[in-house]
């Protein structure tokens, strides 16, 4: 039983912690001033037999590294089961940024909406920052967000908040404030220009609050440095059959804890719009791979 510390510290009971399902399901590290607890999946450290060979030591170290890299945050589905299969943890981690790269009309925005709908579930709130951050009061943006698309993706209209900042300074401020708020499930924006400093600040803000930030950017932004956890490049593939749905090729350009440049081809069902995997070099969640 931990002793009660002064104000600002947590009062922790060992029994309650160990019996909770959250504690045993994944690696958890609880750090207070006087208590440090480490537990691995299902087994405590004292139960493992000592490693016999060098390979086994390396395997255990890699396993610990991958699980440590997975972090303690929960994951949300990406809205597409095929994509969930190749992402570590089965989806996007809360508190990270996800970047969708694609030309206008390529499908990146709608995929981001599907992922945002999955992140919000039934009760969450999605905040959309309208505009591309380069317009002014006298030169308003020519394209505006269209909420019925979000309704079609599975969100309810009450779950949406749309923010329309008037100029670039307000845009950056509003995006920053939205990322800092722990009450939002997801934030969607399509900044045309994002400096590395601003990007890093957004990533830190998302990490602190636990929201998932979806940024939709043009494909020309691929060479620029990014602080997003996951970067997805969307290539649409033309088809000739009108009864077939939309075919998109997703390339996992960068993902922390997974192999880079994995490709996935998704096709949308013409009737319902759900995405299914047609082809792709899927690999199992690479817990034993070295993250680059």
């Amino acid at each position: 039983m931990a002793r009660t510390l002064g104000s600002g510290h947590k009062f922790i009971s060992f029994n309650a912690l160990i019996n909770s399902p959250a504690f045993s399901a994944r690696a958890t590290r609880i750090d207070t001033d006087t208590i440090q607890v480490y537990t691995y999946r299902g087994a405590s450290m004292t139960e493992l037999p000592p490693p016999t060979s060098r390979d086994e030591i390396l395997a255990r170290l890699r396993k610990a590294l991958a699980q440590g890299a997975a972090g303690t945050a929960e994951t949300v589905s990406s809205g597409c089961p095929g994509l969930d299969a190749i992402l570590p943890g089965g989806g996007f981690r809360r508190g990270t940024l996800v970047e969708w790269l694609g030309e206008p009309g390529a499908g990146a925005g709608t995929l981001a909406l599907l992922a945002a709908a999955a992140a919000c579930g039934r009760d969450g709130t999605l905040l959309v920052v309208d505009g591309d951050g380069t317009h002014t009061r006298h030169c308003p943006p020519s394209e505006r967000f269209y909420p019925p698309a979000a309704v079609g993706a599975g969100l309810a209209a009450q779950q949406l908040i749309v923010v329309r900042p008037a100029n670039a300074v307000d845009y950056t401020w509003a995006l920053d404030q939205a990322m800092r708020c722990p009450a939002l499930s997801a934030v969607l924006a399509w900044p045309r220009r994002l400096s590395p400093t601003a990007f890093r600040r957004l990533q830190l803000a998302a990490e602190g609050s636990g929201t998932v930030g979806f940024l939709v950017r043009p494909a020309s932004a691929q060479p620029t440095p990014s602080w997003a956890d996951v970067r997805l490049l969307v290539h649409p593939q033309p088809q000739t059959d009108p009864s077939a749905g939309r075919r998109l090729e997703l390339e996992l350009v960068r993902c922390r804890g997974a192999a880079h440049h994995q490709r996935l081809v998704l096709e949308s069902d013409h009737a319902t719009g759900t995405l299914r995997v047609v082809a792709g070099d899927q690999q199992s969640p690479p817990s034993y791979r070295r993250a680059r």
């Binding site: 206008p104 909406l113 394209e143 505006r144 269209y146 079609g152 599975g154 719009g273």
Partner: peptide
């Protein structure tokens, strides 16, 4: 609410 996300575009020109 229809469940087809490809029915309406996500951005409209003003």
């Amino acid at each position: 609410p229809s469940v087809d996300p490809w029915l309406r575009p996500w951005r409209l020109f003003a």
